[in-house]
Amino acid sequence: MNDNERTGSLPQRIFENSIVLIIIVVVWLFVPLYTKNLFLPSLFSILESFRDLALNGELWLDIVYSLRIVFAGLLIAASVAVVLGMLLGRFARLERYLDPTLQIMRNTPVLAILPVFILFLGIGDSSKIAIVIWATFFPTLLNTIQGAKNVDANLIRSAQSMGISSGGLFFKVILPAASPFILAGFRLSAGVAMIVIVAAEMVGAQHGLGFMIFNYQHSYQTSRMYVGILTLAIIGVFLNFGLVKLEKHLTRWQEKTQ
């Protein structure tokens, strides 16, 4: 891709970025009006349902309910994963003890564990937070281990030559050096969290976007079901966009590679 192609004029770029979406929207608006299939309502009726659900407050309740669990789980998982990952990355012995267990845990499909969490913790918030923690723990952990292992030995030697304590070495050298890996891992975790919360809410819940989608599918209120799906898609896009921005800001010290 050459420079001219990449930096075309602003209107041209807006056109290139939106034309496919516009076509999809138009097709979705009008084609279902002729096909009249209950399973694929027109975007008009979906928007109508969206307005209804937004006005009666149900939609916001479900969004808040789902995101609360996503963020609680993500935060707990990420803080433990970063600390443990740094230790595992720097102490090979500790890694030898824990690696086999972690490998088995990591490779067990998350949703296969869900019934166990429900047995122990019921179908309330705690089992959902637990499953989000479990699922989002590993991407951040594995990336943190990788990052901590890859710290330039010269930087460590340089800091040590200035008589830095081992605590100082962890916080002032290894953590910032590993941060690009950690942030990339966290972004993966956030994506996983959205998948898992929807699945968990489909299995057993009273609220939440996953519950909402499942519930309206059961009662054949398909335009309301699509409201839930589209809301999740929009949240996902914004979440990823925000995390990419954050990542770019926190790693602005890295040389930009084209």
Binding site: N154, R157, S158, S161, G163, A177, T251
Partner: peptide, 16 residues
């Protein structure tokens, strides 16, 4: 800190 070492690879902290 009574000795300072300077390496071929600079070893500057890239995030600072």
């Amino acid at each position: 800190l009574n000795r300072g070492i300077i390496m071929q690879a600079y070893a500057l902290f890239p995030w600072r």
